[in-house]
Design a protein around this nucleic acid. Sequence first.
DNA 1: AGGCAGGTTCTTA
DNA 2: TAAGAACCTGCC
Length: 274
Amino acid sequence: MKIRIEDDFDLGKIADSGQCFRFNESGDGYSVLSLDKHLFIKKLEADEYELDCSKDDFERFWKGYFDLDLSYRDIRGRIDKEKDSYLYSASEFGKGIRILRQDPWEMLISFIISQRKNIPAIKASIEKLCERAGEAIGEDENGKLLYSFPTPEKLAGLSLDELSACSLGYRDKYVMKAARDVAAGSVDLMAYKELGDDELMERLLELFGVGVKVANCEILFGYHRLDAFPRDVWINRVLEMHYPQGFMFDRYAPYNGIMQQYLFFYSRSLGSNM
DNA sequence: AGGCAGGTTCTTA
DNA sequence: TAAGAACCTGCC
């Protein structure tokens, strides 16, 4: 089907924004995997996009996945060029990034894996995990098989050695524990959706291998709570160098997470010495 | 060849 | 409570 998107929307920037690890350039478009769903999307002319899904699939899933009901342009408009010139530059640079509505389970495992890894390494680990424990759900244009993200049960069924074979390193134990807890039902990620922000954070921090940074990524990308503001090495560097008197969290609430994405994308593109 | 990559846990004081 | 070390692995 074909759709028109008038708001900020840049597939390349989203793919490279570090929030998703199974969203890749493929041929003349992008291949997007979320849990057990796959989409091929490509840009046509101007604001037109071609999606290889039904109108029903789009309305029921992908529209929400891309967060198309929220105007990122309006949110960007809150940034004052004079009062916050650094964020303004970052937002101009990152214009087109959106916060995808991803699955809490997939995000939890993905961000547990992410610690002290660079993005290519994270992607490689997740791909191995999907090939090993996911289901074949189709193939891309080149005939390469596509796999779903493993269910908690499937992942919980793997041995520590099998997990380790996915280049998880010392994180293998974290993934195993999380998978077993979720599979057993002692951790109910879906029920966590109902929790208030503070309690959600508390529950997530109870998980082995989940600290404040990973928990914030889970809250922002897995639970789509757009005010969460994950602080990683890049963001900390930005805050130190450009916000010695503090970032204006009050001004941008409840969308600080979107601002975080602009800052992250901008600083990372500039390299370590901004 | 040693350091470091989107951190967290464990140990020590 | 707070700093410092240790941790897998792969890639400069």
